[in-house]
């Protein structure tokens, strides 16, 4: 198993990803897989929800899927 703490689920990390390109919730979850962050599934969902609420990203439908992104 990968060591935990390899990837950190932080506001800065989420901001960085969403500034690069629009992402779905699934895309984001893939970036912060529990096996890489050491967080539980619930903690991951809660943390991402809080961070997305705070960042309040733009939303855009691409291929019928909601994507989030941040304008610089």
């Amino acid at each position: 198993a990968a060591s935990s703490g390899e990837v950190q689920l932080t506001e800065e990390a989420v901001r960085r990803y969403l500034s690069r390109k629009p992402m779905t919730t699934k895309d984001l979850l893939k970036k912060f897989q529990t096996k890489r962050t050491g967080l539980s599934s619930d903690a991951t969902v809660n943390a991402l929800a809080q961070l997305l609420k705070r960042l309040d990203p733009e939303r855009k439908l691409i291929a019928d899927k909601m994507h989030f992104f941040l304008k610089e």
Binding site: T24, L29, K30, T44
Partner: peptide
Amino acid sequence: SSSEADEMAAALEAELNHFM
């Protein structure tokens, strides 16, 4: 597993739709 990822995505979207 992909089903766990699906569940997490669904839970996250539910949280966000609640708010936004």
